[in-house]
């Protein structure tokens, strides 16, 4: 009981601004966007790596002979493809990765923009009483 009192009294000195429902909603939205962005970041990184690998592969494949057979991975197994066919498949894969990357990048950007807006508003109201950085 005594502990509880001390804690509350200390807290009260820093608790100057009343948190309204709107503020709470904004804080929630911020948290939501932050979590969403975190989830996307990993995937984005993964896609970027994949794209890099495919780009490397593209330069590598250009150097091989046209009548050469290459092993191209599709799903879990490797296909023995003639080089021109492999190039076609590679283009398909590159296009798919690029479009995914663009889509996710747009979502991430949207999250960041929303968070920036909310940060401005919430910091203006709560100042040091709130911390919106990681």
């Amino acid at each position: 009981m005594n502990n509880m009192r001390v804690l509350a009294e200390e807290e009260e000195t820093s608790d100057g601004v009343e948190v309204t429902w709107e503020d709470q909603q904004q804080i929630n939205t911020f948290a939501k966007l932050n979590a969403r962005l975190k989830g996307i970041e990993d995937k984005l990184e993964q896609l970027k790596q994949e794209k890099e690998a495919l780009d490397d592969l593209s330069t590598e494949l250009e150097l091989t002979d046209e009548d050469q057979t290459v092993l191209y991975k599709l799903g879990e197994s490797f296909l023995h493809l003639p080089q021109p066919d492999a190039l076609v498949r590679l283009e398909i894969d590159q296009a798919s990765v690029s479009s995914q990357l663009a889509k996710l990048g747009a979502v991430a950007e949207e999250c960041e923009r929303g968070m920036k807006d909310l940060k401005v508003r919430l910091y203006a109201k709560f100042g040091k009483a709130i911390n919106l950085d990681e």
Partner: peptide
């Protein structure tokens, strides 16, 4: 001719075994 050749694949029989 390229299309008529049977497709050869290397597939995973088990972990690390193809």
């Amino acid at each position: 001719e390229g299309a008529k050749k049977p497709l050869t694949t290397t597939f995973e029989l088990n972990d690390t075994l193809f």
